[in-house]
Design a protein around this nucleic acid. Structure first.
Lengths: 168, 168, 168, 168
DNA sequence: TTTT
DNA sequence: TTTT
């Protein structure tokens, strides 16, 4: 059935790349998408939309996007649920990205402390043939929080990701 | 910023219509949207996507759609959060419908126990000028759950809806 | 780059199925999509949007949709041009459908003179495993117009379709 | 009925701003949207999609976008037809933009010969309150072609635009 | 805790 | 618990 989402926004933090036991890459990131209208206090708000992307594009996202990057997403809304550590069912609504477009011009927002430039590919959803040989989690400093409110925090539940989550 | 969602699916239950203290109508409903692919067990799954709609269209939705109705939604993803009764912050991702299209043909799925036929208006997002004089919650029998997991359950928190939630 | 179209409308005539020299199926159809607003004369107008779909789904469309069928389309806008018989370049804008959803309930609008019922598959973009063994053009009576206004009329230009038109 | 288009692409030339007899602004522009796949010759192609936008946003587009600017569009497909100077009916398919997002960072692609910087407003579809006092056609050098292939060329048919074209 |  |  029809289920289509298109977003343009900025990453609220570096993407988080992980691998399933079978070696399939998956990246999570959150887009801040500014609303086109102001609230009753006259302020512009944003929506913070969790996104997931799989396989090669997950690695591209991890390599080329970082906190603050402007990106476009074309995908579907997916919902899932899991039981949290208090035995309570938690429902998740997120965007399964089918393609991601890097909208940051060459060298933009590269005032990063990571020395890892992210390039701009107007012509497509990412680089082709550029494999940097580093697809590990570039976000390893997000771990070990004592609480578990963010379903995207993978800290306490590595078991939560499995090849069964692959939606195709 | 670009934020667009289009869905076609079936209501998982009757829509829930409420009013803000200022008398603004708002309806919540959940669309079951079947996935176009099968999972590893060969089963077709669905995504259950919470939707909100405001004002006149909320009343149309409450009057013309019910559990099982096929409907199309054009809108935006919105996120919000609230503190639940355990003082924990809960994050909600839902679709703010800007228009809803009734896709059920005349008399279809009218095997309802409510004797309230829902019509089909291919020409637009709903009836114009048909006011049945009954926009009250047609779902009043959903109440009194002891728990509070579903943010769409309005039972214990009428205060949760205010005119401040109006996004425009 | 982002290019996404979602439509719901009714076929203005039976779909037109053809095959490339290499045997790849392609179907053309036009969706009438009613506008959600009225014009200055208070009339509701419609947009007539040409769509193309390839391969197996082209055959499904030809088998299950006909004039008047309600359908949803998810796809991309594509543009192309060709030189007409007067040596003038003609520009075409059409929707490359990536998936089509049949929104007609079982037996609906089957008041057809073709005795070819079209079914309703809420669960997906088409039938799986139902091959009627007849994918030929079910529209052969559209031919031989002396004029050429409709770019979808293939009458005088069988050469216009080749495997090169396959966009992937 | 559902009719939704989302595009990200680059303007193929400066936008063309005009006014109806009643003083309503309307701008036309064409987006080049690169395809995410290559053709049989291994080349990346683009789709050239004609867009229209009305009123205040038309003036914003004319003031802030120019040839080469990266922009996002959210809108609907509209079709119309007119009789050309040879008495032949011409069918037009274009995108009625409901909002346009400027995706060019500050000062980007300002290697223009017009000395007219275009700014970047991540926060919305355009500037509010910045009126440059010049909304006239900034494209007056496009006229007087002897042929009429581009339906957007307004050269010979100023009558073609009227307030009746306003779709709302 | 879900639709057909 | 957020982007510019």
């Amino acid at each position: 059935m029809l289920n289509r989402v298109v977003l343009v926004g900025r990453l609220t933090r570096d993407p988080e790349l992980r691998y399933t036991p079978n070696g399939v890459a998956v990246a999570n990131f959150t887009l801040a998408v500014n609303r086109p209208f102001s609230n009753q206090q006259g302020e512009r708000e944003a929506d913070f939309i969790n996104c997931v992307i799989w396989r090669k594009q997950a690695e591209n996202v991890a390599n080329y996007l970082k906190k603050g990057s402007l990106a476009g997403v074309d995908g579907r809304i997916q919902t899932r649920s899991y039981d949290n550590n208090e035995g309570k069912r938690v429902f998740i609504t997120e965007v399964m990205a089918e393609s991601v477009q890097f909208l940051e011009p060459r060298g933009a927002s590269s005032n990063s402390n990571q020395g890892q430039g992210n390039d701009y590919y107007g012509g497509g959803p990412g680089p082709s043939g550029n494999d940097f040989g580093r697809q590990q989690n570039n976000n390893q400093n997000r771990s070990s929080g004592g609480f578990n409110e963010d379903p995207f925090a993978n800290d306490g539940k590595p078991i939560d990701i499995s090849d069964d989550d692959l939606p195709f």
